[in-house]
Design a protein around this nucleic acid. Structure first.
Lengths: 344, 344
DNA sequence: TCCTGGCACTCTCAAAGCTCGACTGCTAAT
DNA sequence: ATTAGCAGTCGAGCTTTGAGAGTGCCAGGA
């Protein structure tokens, strides 16, 4: 019993691997040859029939080989594939990245680009939310008679800004003073501690500036709130096209779904990570129409010294992808990024 | 003479317009019918032969209609097409945009997204360089024992940041003081006025902090310098795929070229704008391999109150595009953005 | 109970041949 | 300068055909 069922797993594995490599449905005969198994094609056929019944593989049409179904890939990912270690060249690339990291935003961009290159797929990365950040500095810059820019700098180095419309027209120095007051009052305060003490702030300035202060305080609050809204950056969309004829002829809808950041964000958010820190969604598991033929591999990375937070990064590619190396690249990337962000 | 040569222009116009609409080579017979001209197909054929000789149109194969060449489109754009006014709905969309503009970055993103929607093509926008900006505030935030983040806020509301590695490990307040000193010394200084007086800055702090100050000052300089390096944001890449089978089968290389921001930046930089403020590059005129089958329509927008600066925005699409409405959308978008940025 | 060899059957893919239709270019007449 | 008519060319699309690959099933053997 165990004998035959382990062979079936081997068959599934072989089918997945061959199909990923050759992009063609794999038949019983070809399989025994390529893998020089010890049994005859007929035996394999029986196993295949069994696997098909279990919904792990399917035949595109009567006289073709089999290809894995989403469930087949799922089983493969869960039980069979090994996460492969990275190659030397890949490690090198990451080390270089770690050295050249200067600015927060740039680091994210380089990371996502590198991940796209390593995997030859579309890479995405979620901006860290500043839950664990504290407020570092607030500044108010006049932009025109009526408008001013409120800028909040967080301890993580993230900088947020927002344009506000003022009722009156205070001079530049007054605005500056308002900014200083807010800085002073909120310094070191957790960015996620809402609401902020607006009335205290207002009463901290002279009456003439109080309405301005009200507007500014409100803007700061909005900024802190919106810090919980995620953003995604992305690279390697060209790889979608390059994956050549895979994904049906329909890369358009996929691109659309990717530009719709909301979809991806929800998806990433829902993903639960296993003990390896990885998470995979395959085909329909994405529960999104246009991503039927794609899979998402994601991992969490630590966004600051404190760790906890957990933004994510990952790649999107055809279900027919090399899960082993993709998973290893994603995992490694997450670790490296965590290290860079928390300094190492 | 003038009679027959103006008709030839009309024929060219008709060919371009029909081809853009139908996506199919247009023949002499179909042309007289659709346009109910007063002449016979044979006459048109003669004109076509003439136009072909001049290199304005070409036939994909012997028994097909004609399609415009790049030179044909060029003539069409230069001499024939009228920039069409926007529809009401389009104006509406822009007005809404103007109202919801809060933060600098967000405005840019919304703009580029809207432009992509309006034109159904890939929209790009170049970040303004801060030539005309002045320095508003500088802050230094410790990130770890060895590293700190230098943040520069400009009068335009743009915020730049850069990570630096410090030789020693000053406490947070010292760093803060360094930041304040720099702010104080450079306040109102033009961001493009380089080099900055590093030695003055260094001697403005106590000896223990001087090496730190040197690092920070250098970082500020780097930031100001790098402000001249352009960046591009982009939206609507999905439209590339949607433009269905146009562009050959080869949207991959195009996506790659777009991700290579350098290429686009050079291209945008080279474009000279006509009296309408618009500039168009068609096919080979882009002098870039993978953009052979695309055209770029761009316009300059004013990036601040002072005006002058001149960053660009535009769209990239198939050469076979509706130049009239694309040009009008780009131009309108440039005007609106100028107005928003310089406040109106 | 599991494996194997053999056989009949099915279905896709690619090449080949074919017809149809759309255009053109040319010439001679107006 | 324009027109009508005619002969010639070529691609798009359809059908046919053959080859190849692969399956399912059955009956026999370990």
């Amino acid at each position: 019993m165990s004998d035959t069922s382990t062979r079936r797993l081997q068959v599934l594995r072989a089918i997945v691997e061959d199909y990923v490599q050759t992009r063609e449905p794999v038949g019983s005969k070809a399989l025994v040859e390529r893998r020089n198994l010890e049994v005859s094609p007929a035996t394999i056929r029986n196993d295949m029939a069994q696997l098909e019944e279990e919904g792990l593989i399917a035949a595109p049409h009567t006289s073709a080989g089999r290809i894995p179904t989403d469930r087949g890939y799922r089983l493969f990912v869960d039980r069979i594939t090994e996460v492969r270690p990275l190659s030397r060249a890949e490690r090198r690339a990451m080390d270089i990245l770690a050295e050249t990291a200067d600015d927060h935003e740039a680091t994210m961009e380089q990371t996502v680009r590198l991940l796209a290159m390593l995997t030859n797929q579309v890479a995405v990365i979620q901006h860290p939310q500043h839950t664990s950040a504290t407020i570092r500095h607030v500044d108010v810059v006049p932009m025109s008679a009526q408008k001013a820019l409120v800028i909040v700098i967080l301890s993580t180095g993230k900088v947020e800004q927002r344009m506000v419309t003022l009722g009156e027209t205070p001079d530049e120095d007054s605005l500056h003073r308002v900014g200083l007051k807010v800085s002073e009052q909120l310094y070191r305060r957790s960015a996620s501690a809402l609401p902020i003490p607006v009335s205290t702030l207002i009463s901290a300035v002279e009456p003439a500036l109080q309405s301005t202060m009200a507007v500014v305080a409100h803007a700061v609050e909005t900024i802190l709130e919106s810090g919980r809204v995620d953003r995604i950056i992305m690279a390697g969309t060209a790889n979608l096209a390059k994956s050549g004829g895979d994904l049906g002829p329909s890369i358009g809808p996929i691109l659309e779904a990717l530009e719709e950041q909301v979809v991806l964000l929800r998806l990433l958010h829902e993903m639960q990570h296993d003990r390896r820190g990885l998470s995979v969604r395959i085909g329909q598991e994405t529960s999104h129409e246009s991503l039927q033929e794609t899979a998402v591999v994601a991992a969490e990375y630590a966004t600051g010294k404190s760790g906890g937070d957990g933004a994510k990064l990952g790649v999107v590619g055809p279900t027919r992808m090399d899960y082993g190396s993709t998973m290893s690249a994603v995992r490694a990337m997450a670790r490296y990024l965590s290290r860079i962000l928390s300094e190492g």
